[in-house]
Amino acid sequence: MTLALEVLAVVIMATVSLGIYRIERGPTGTDRMLSAMLFGTSGVALTLVLAEITGIGALRDMALVFALLGALTSVSFVKRAWGAEDR
């Protein structure tokens, strides 16, 4: 029953590629950041699916690290894009 998992992995990658449109069009840096956030959540899902397909449990640890890094990227983006003028 790995077919369902493989189809799911392809669909998730397809939805991620929709996010590339938003990076291309923007218009603001924030809109592009949203695509990065999309890649974060989808990346976690994709890695977990790959862990199940391949049977490599360590990929779940990778998904955990993606989940934690996602928060850091957003924080650093907000700090850098708007600077520290109001905090």
Partner: peptide
Amino acid sequence: IWLIVIVTGATACYLVANA
């Protein structure tokens, strides 16, 4: 892992909206 994504996602969402 889902819980971490929910909490960090909602926090990141607030940070971006706030900024």
